[in-house]
Simulated assay, not measured.
Amino acid sequence: MKPLVNAPSRTEQVYHAIRESICDCSLEPGMHLVQEDLAGTLGVSRQPVQQAMLLLKNDGLVVESGGRGLFVAPIDRESMEHHYQIRLVLDQLAVRLVAERSRQDAAFKARLRREGDAILAIGKGAEQAGSAAEAVRHDVQFHSFIYDMAGNPLIRPTAESHWLFLRRIMIGVLLHAARGPLVWAQHEHILDLLVAGEVDRAVTLATDHVLGAQQALIEAMEAGKADHLFGAATLS
């Protein structure tokens, strides 16, 4: 076998570029993806775009509609609820483990406070600047930080595939449900409870945090406030 090359391949670069555009809703749910256009925009040949599309289909971010081609996967309520169910369980587990570690380890508690506060400061700044996509990136960073601090190395990789879907959902929540300030206030409160080692209270607030975001999105969808983001138009 030949040594692996560290630099990302052209296919990986294309995959990540398109994936990020889907996750931050620059490429909206239901949008027709024309491979020639994508190749032209990215300045590459069609081959890496074709290969990237296979990876994106495996992620569930791109779907094929008969003979009509490839489309950004729509966001429907049932899929949203399924992803939120998994996220809820993972967040509850991570928060419980972090709070328990904080109660037992002073050095861990100090690190949790220091690094958590830094993430909160950056995230609040992004939210106040009005960039929903950037605020969501830091939102994911906050939750990923908790996953990492939980001490179970399986939590974060298990969550990552769901975040690919949920990041698009969260953009909609911030843009259409006006939850930005509340989200970051809850993050701050969750961190305080984790640092204090308040296991049960931290789990309760984390639960309310996830379910509140889900309910806000459901209400936005039912009110028709974000039809262009949440796949109101079908692909059939």
Rank of each mutant, 00 (worst) to 15 (best):
A220E: 12
K225N: 11
L164P: 01
G69H: 05
T207F: 09
M170W: 08
K109R: 15
Q104P: 10
L88P: 12
A39F: 04
F71V: 09
Q47M: 08
V62C: 05
H16Q: 13
L205S: 01
G66R: 06
L191R: 00
L4D: 08
A159T: 06
L193Q: 02
F145R: 01
L194C: 12
G123K: 03
L174Y: 07
D91Y: 07
V140Q: 11
S236L: 10
K2S: 12
A185D: 11
G123D: 06
G172C: 09
G151T: 05
A52R: 02
A110F: 11
V98R: 02
T207A: 10
K57C: 10
R201I: 11
K225S: 13
E36D: 04
F142A: 06
G67N: 09
F165A: 04
S131N: 12
R113S: 12
M31Y: 01
Q186D: 11
E64S: 13
S26H: 01
Q92G: 13
I171V: 13
V199T: 14
D200E: 15
K57L: 09
D91M: 14
A132N: 03
L193G: 05
P48D: 04
D37W: 00
E36S: 05
A223V: 09
L193W: 03
L164V: 03
H176N: 05
V140Y: 04
Q13E: 14
E20Q: 09
L211W: 05
R10E: 15
Q215Y: 09
L191E: 02
L194T: 03
G69A: 08
H187Y: 09
V44F: 04
L97H: 06
C25F: 02
A110C: 09
G180N: 03
G30R: 00
F165L: 10
V34N: 11
P157G: 07
S21D: 09
R68V: 08
V72D: 02
R103Q: 15
E222L: 11
G130L: 14
L112K: 00
L193I: 07
H228P: 05
I86L: 14
G151A: 04
V44P: 08
I155D: 01
V63W: 05
V89E: 12
R96E: 15
N6C: 08
M80H: 06
L42Y: 04
L154Q: 04
D117E: 13
Q214E: 15
L93I: 15
V183N: 03
R96D: 14
Q214P: 08
A99L: 13
E219K: 01
H32L: 15
I86A: 07
Q50I: 09
G66S: 07
K225Q: 13
T204L: 14
Q85P: 03
A126Y: 04
A220N: 06
A7W: 06
A52Y: 05
A126G: 01
E12H: 02
I18Q: 02
R87G: 14
K109T: 14
E78Q: 12
E12D: 10
L70F: 14
F165G: 00
H143C: 12
M53P: 07
R101K: 15
A232S: 11
